[in-house]
Design a protein around this nucleic acid. Structure first.
Lengths: 146, 146
DNA sequence: CTCCAATATTGGCGCCACCAACACTAGCCG
DNA sequence: CGGCTAGTGTTGGTGGCGCCAATATTGGAG
């Protein structure tokens, strides 16, 4: 019961945004236990992979607006997951770096996210998951000027 | 340049939410020309397909919270796209119905959305689009208890 | 030296989703 | 019939996410 209007149910843009909503809910609920949110994971992941960086660089890597990076880094500093120090070689620039606690938090969030992926794709076979990921990757790459 | 952290790029939940962001942007930009937004289209589509209904019913069909339906219907009434009249058979309930102007607006928005789908899926072949839509439909159905 | 690009920060906006509380109504069931 | 439960409309608030403008400051190019 409570069918979805055909006009919507048929449109890829609807399917994608609806599924994204379910995904965000799963991620949000999972992260809630760790006291974090999406922006935190993105920044921790970037720092872990690329090393210490300025906030502007983090924003470009994570697809987060500079002004939102400020707030997220504030929170991460407060939580002790990152350090923010002035860049010695560059007056105005900050140097954000991962702490040990941040690394641990990242590991915790990875566990959560693995569970979320499994739950999100539960109805699909391994082959289908691969197909879906491939198609999505191509679309994201196409729409991300990067 | 400005690569996406591997941890993110690999996760279906990231791909889906990122693609959803691009989709929402395309839809938003397209709808801007018509002076409407997503909620409006959903409600107009439901009214066109299922006929006049209460606000609570619209919310269930469109996956919109009751309180948000209030605001959206207010805007649609203001725009002259729907009528809101008290349900004669049911004291508290309203009866929301589509106007001629609403039907025309829905047609305009359909044109916009068709263009958006084409742009969104541009890199994919016809067969791939079908595959993607099928996979997404199954996932959405799985996560939508309704 | 001057001008331009980049950086950090503040403050604000909008969409979408969600929740709690209230007032009221309909319908059911004892 | 009376009272309770479920459903309805409405107000008001919260939060995540994405985005933009303005400001102050700094580095580097020309």
């Amino acid at each position: 019961m409570d069918p979805i209007p055909e006009r919507l149910a048929v449109k890829p843009s609807w399917l994608i945004t609806q599924l994204a909503m379910h995904a965000r809910r799963l991620v949000f609920d999972g992260f809630a236990a760790t006291g974090a949110r999406g922006y935190h994971y993105r920044i921790l992941a970037a720092l872990h992979e690329f090393g210490p960086a300025s906030q502007a660089q983090l924003g470009r890597w994570c697809r987060i607006d500079r002004s939102d990076v400020v707030a997220a880094v504030n929170e991460l500093v407060e939580l002790g997951h990152v350090d923010r120090t002035p860049d010695p070689d560059h007056g105005r620039r900050n140097r954000v770096s991962l702490t040990d606690a941040g690394r641990e938090q990242l590991a915790r969030m990875d566990v959560v996210l693995d569970r979320v992926q499994a739950e999100l794709l539960e109805p699909l076979s391994v082959q289908e998951r691969k197909t879906l990921t491939d198609l999505l990757s191509r679309l994201v790459a196409h729409h991300d000027p990067t």
